[in-house]
Computed example of a mutant assay.
Amino acid sequence: MTPRPLVHIGYHKTATTWFQRCFYPRVEGRRYVPQPLVRRALLDPHALHFDPATARRLLGDGLDTAILCEENLSGGLHNGGLAGCLSKDVAARIRATLPDARIVVVVRRQADAIASAYVQYVKGGGTHGVERYLFGRDYLGPHAPEHDEVPRFRFEHFAYDRLIALYDDLFGRENVHVYRYEELRADPPGFIRAFMAEHGLAAPVGDIDFDPANRGLGRLLLRAVRLANRFTARAVADKSCLVHLPYWYKISRRLMRKAAAGRLAGRPATAETLLGPALLAEIERRFQMSNAALDRRIGGRRWATMPPSDARVAPPSRWRRICES
Rank of each mutant, 00 (worst) to 15 (best):
G141M: 08
P142M: 01
P142A: 05
A144S: 15
A144V: 05
A144C: 12
H147Y: 15
D148P: 03
E149A: 15
V150M: 12
V150N: 06
R152G: 06
R154Y: 00
R154I: 00
R154N: 03
F155E: 01
F155M: 08
A159R: 11
Y160F: 14
D161W: 04
D161A: 14
R162Y: 07
I164N: 01
I164R: 02
I164Q: 02
A165M: 00
Y167V: 03
D168Q: 08
D169F: 01
D169T: 12
F171D: 09
F171C: 08
G172L: 05
R173S: 13
R173D: 04
V176K: 09
H177D: 05
Y179L: 06
Y181M: 00
Y181E: 01
R185E: 14
A186H: 15
D187F: 14
P188C: 13
P188Y: 07
P189S: 09
G190K: 06
I192G: 09
A194K: 12
A197C: 11
H199Q: 02
G200C: 02
L201I: 02
L201Q: 00
A202M: 07
A202F: 04
A202K: 09
V205G: 03
G206H: 08
G206F: 08
D207L: 08
D207M: 08
F210L: 09
F210Y: 15
P212S: 11
N214K: 13
R215N: 11
R215A: 13
G216N: 08
G218A: 02
R219S: 13
L220C: 07
R223E: 01
V225S: 05
V225I: 14
R226S: 09
A228P: 04
A228F: 02
A233N: 10
A233R: 13
